[in-house]
Design a protein around this nucleic acid. Structure first.
Lengths: 130, 130
DNA sequence: CATACCAGTTACCAGTAGGATACCACCCGC
DNA sequence: GCGGGTGGTATCCTACTGGTAACTGGTATG
C-alpha cells in the first residue's frame, strides 16, 4: 500500500491519518467548496451564491484552502476585475474523498427521505428574503 | 450512476450531497471514531484511550452516531460490565469515505513532514499525567 | 474497608466557528 | 452623480464545540 508505512498497527495509523485529514478539511464548508471547485473554477460571488455562504466566511475558508495549496486564486484582468478560484492539482488527490462523500450523501438522503433531492427543479434560492 | 438522479446539474447536486454527508459526520471526532470502529468493535474506555478523547465528548459523539444508525451499543454481561460499540452494516457504506480520508491523510502527512508518521514506535500515551 | 476499574453523567468554562449586516474601493453605463 | 456589478473587510454577536474535573454506582481485588 504505502511502501514507507511500517508494520501497520492498523488502528493507530488509521485514526491518525483520518485526524490529519480532518485538520485540513475541517469545518462546515471546506469540502463543499472543494467539491464545487473540483468541477470547474468559480468566481468569488458566484461561489458565494452557489453554495449560500456569506462573503466573510467564504473569504476565510478560501484563504485557508489556499494556504494548504488546495486552491489557487487568480485575478483576471477584466473590467470589473474578477477573481477566479480553482482547484489545484494537489486537491485532485482529495477527489476520491469528495466523490465518496457525494455518493454517500446522495444515497443517504434517499435512505432518510425516501426520495432523491429535487435537484432539477427551478430551485428557488432559499428565498431572497423580502 | 444513480438511476433516480435526474439531469444532474452537477454543481448543485454535488455540493448538496457533500453538505448532507457533513451534517451526519461533522465535527472533530465522528469520522475518526467511525474509522476505528470499522476495523473492529471497541469498548468505551478502550476507544477513549485509543484516540485520546474525553469521556464526555466520546459519549455524546457515540450517541449521535447511534441515532444515525452508524454504530450499535451492546452491553456485555461481564463483571465489570463492559459496553461494546460496533459499526453497523449501514456504516459500512461510509467505508469508502473513511478509506479515502485515511489514504489522503497518510500521503498528506508525508507531503508536509517529508516522512511517514512514526506509527510503530512505542507511542507513549500523550503522557498519563502524573 | 480501601482502592481501582468499568461506563458513563454532570457542572463549569474558554475558544471559536460561523451567521448577519454594513461597509469600502473599483469600474461601468446612463 | 447614481445605481449596479465586482471582490472582498470590519464589526458584532451567539451558539455550539469540546476540554477538565468531579462524581455516581456497580463489581472486583488486596
Amino acid at each position: 500500500m504505502h511502501p514507507l508505512a511500517p508494520a501497520l498497527p492498523a488502528c493507530k495509523t488509521t485514526h491518525r491519518a483520518v485526524y490529519d485529514t480532518l485538520e485540513v478539511v475541517s469545518g462546515k464548508w471546506k469540502l463543499v467548496i472543494l467539491a464545487v471547485l473540483l468541477e470547474r473554477p468559480y468566481r468569488f460571488k458566484e461561489l458565494s451564491r452557489e453554495i449560500g455562504i456569506s462573503p466573510r466566511v467564504l473569504s476565510k475558508e478560501l484563504q485557508e484552502l489556499e494556504q494548504h495549496q488546495l486552491v489557487t486564486r487568480t485575478v483576471c484582468d477584466t473590467r470589473p476585475i474578477t477573481v477566479e478560484y480553482a482547484a489545484t492539482p494537489y486537491s485532485q488527490t482529495l477527489h476520491s474523498v469528495v466523490a465518496a462523500m457525494r455518493e454517500w450523501g446522495l444515497t443517504h438522503h434517499q435512505t432518510i427521505v425516501g426520495q432523491p433531492r429535487p435537484d432539477t427543479v427551478p430551485l428557488a434560492q432559499p428565498v431572497a428574503k423580502p
